[in-house]
Design a protein around this nucleic acid. Structure first.
Lengths: 334, 334
DNA sequence: GCATTCTCTGCAACCGGTTGCGTGTCAAGA
DNA sequence: TCTTGACACGCAACCGGTTGCAGAGAATGC
């Protein structure tokens, strides 16, 4: 009587209760057009009464398709990734898929382990800003469909955020304010984004005939940005473009601590547009459309798994400058 | 010959190649002590050569145990949740489990759908700051083990962050600086945390014989915090304790825009300690230990599923004040 | 009125593992 | 020599769905 068991009804119980075979119940949910209207509705009402819901695991085993997708990011806590996750999530919902999340803590070995653990449980994996070497990425790509974000590996589908346009606009913006010597605050050397941004900035500066200097923050973090400020000021630059917004935020705070007004005495531009206007002054930055990157990657993964064809796909999102209040006229005298 | 198929070998292929039965291969991985040393090593070496890795889905179907856990949060992009996610993730790793992530966008219906979708694919669900009504939570709890974070439903295992100690300390801190009239900037009315914080603050103020006023931000966000500042200043308070750090950050920025120095002319204290020292001035706040909450919830879920006993568990984490630089002496004159 | 086609449903195999039970082997004990 | 029992392994059923194939009626064509 008093069954204290979490009873999730199975297809057999529904079949028995409805007086049909298991196959019919299955089809009532997956191919209703194969059945008569009447049978479908009867089965469905019985199923609803019993609270039946198809077991995804069993379904996955027999069909080979469980709409699950894994998303692996270097660090959930980095504000760059949540919007991306949210974008992917939204698309996954539309496709009726569930999202596995993995956070590698910027550690290649952990990332490796995660991919291996997810493989076999998901239909595809999205690797964001992967820290893995090409060989290992290719190895995994041989066992499960993979889509890369912010990593450019030939032959694999990938979505890249091309910040060069935005960076170029940022340089123009600063140049118009009269800045002649601008500093690039670099991020992790292994990061594809960092290399790309540095290159874009160098090109834009040369085109304008301006003088580029650079300092390197050991990692992309608020603390790194704050710690780099002494070196940054030592370069004699009047403005800085930082690898990402978080670093820029660190710079902003360190400048405030030194009572150096932004943008009156120093201009700062970030990258990624993940902080919105939450800083003071509100950060002028290069939008990175990370949410879109998540969406596109998920759609791409859908195409890849559906078509079974691993075409050479290289989806590039461009960027633009978001002008807020952290860049301004160059100080008259130094 | 040229098999272009992603060939993941099955247990049968390994069995054949090793000249044993499927059962033996299975046991070589799950119960090696049942087999002779020699057989185990032979099977394992064959498996390694073929690149065999047990299919988790099949395993889950037959055992009923797939170490997967779902975590549902209202909003990935709210900085309160990433540390929590990270904490849960770390514990899941230790347990060899994978994490499903769901983001409900603060929407109860979406949350409902998500739970339903995850149920049957996971061994347990962790609901963070759930927007669901009690009835629906109990309904789901009847189908899958559930652990709640920041939600107090009798009879269900839950971990609560008790900010009352921290809030009380915050009030003391402000009182020592001479503040007599302090404003509580409230968050979402439906939020358990908000109710609890408000109550704690009222009690602390009364105990000290201070005057509490309150304003309500319609939602917990940076914008809401910024928009509430006019009302906040209108109350005549000299200090504010905000529902959370993000709101406090909005207040900070709005005050900066009005050239009202913090903490010289106005003191602000946040809640949750999710921003670290990234604001200017660095935010004095009540630590919420959200990472720990994630860890504890996961451990709890492990206990619940392992012991099959749904004991009445109410795990309370206490908090303390983190003093940084956004609170100070009350301005002499108004 | 009979052959043919179409519609609807059931049978049974299958997905890739796990596990209770049974059997064969071999050494120790009586 | 004959139990007895431990040990190592295989057989076969099972988890909960899906799906190719076949068969039973009903509808259609001639």
């Amino acid at each position: 009587m008093d069954e204290p068991w979490r009873g999730v009804p199975t297809i057999s119980q529904v079949a028995q209760a409805a007086g049909v075979s298991r196959a019919t119940v299955s089809r009532a949910f997956t191919r209703p057009q194969m059945l008569s209207q009447e049978t479908v509705s009867r089965v469905k009402s019985v199923a609803a009464r019993l609270g039946y819901v198809p077991n995804q695991v069993a379904r996955a085993l027999s069909t080979g398709r469980h709409g699950n997708i894994a998303l692996i990011v270097p660090d959930v806590a980095n504000p760059f990734f949540p919007p991306l996750i949210r974008g992917a999530q939204a698309r996954a919902d539309l496709a009726g898929a569930c999202l596995f999340l993995g956070s590698s803590d910027e550690n290649a070995d952990r990332e490796d382990t995660l991919v291996a653990k997810f493989t076999g449980q998901v239909e595809g994996v999205i690797l964001v800003s992967s820290r893995l070497d090409e060989e290992r990425i290719r190895h995994h790509a041989g066992r499960v469909p993979i889509v890369l974000i912010n990593r450019d590996v030939t032959g694999l589908p990938r979505v890249l955020i091309d910040t060069s346009v935005g960076i170029s606009a940022a340089v123009d913006h600063l140049a118009e304010f009269g800045h002649r010597r601008i500093c690039y605050v670099a991020g992790p050397a292994a990061s594809w984004s960092n290399q790309q941004r540095r290159k874009a900035m160098r090109a834009a500066m040369r085109r304008r005939g301006l003088e580029m200097v650079a300092v390197t923050a050991q990692r992309a973090s608020f603390e790194a940005g704050r710690d780099i400020v002494a070196a940054l000021l030592g370069t004699g630059a009047t403005a800085a473009i930082a690898f990402d917004d978080v670093t820029a935020q660190g710079i902003l705070v360190a400048l405030a601590e030194r009572r150096i007004a932004v943008p009156e005495r120093f201009s700062v531009i970030g990258c990624d547009d993940v902080l919105g206007a939450t800083t003071f002054p509100p950060l002028t930055t290069v939008s990175a459309r990370c949410d879109e990157a998540g969406e596109v990657a998920l759609d791409l993964l859908g195409d890849v798994t559906r078509l079974k064809a691993m075409r050479e796909i290289r989806y590039v999102l461009d960027t633009h400058l978001v002008v807020r209040g952290s860049a301004g006229t160059v100080p008259a005298a130094r």
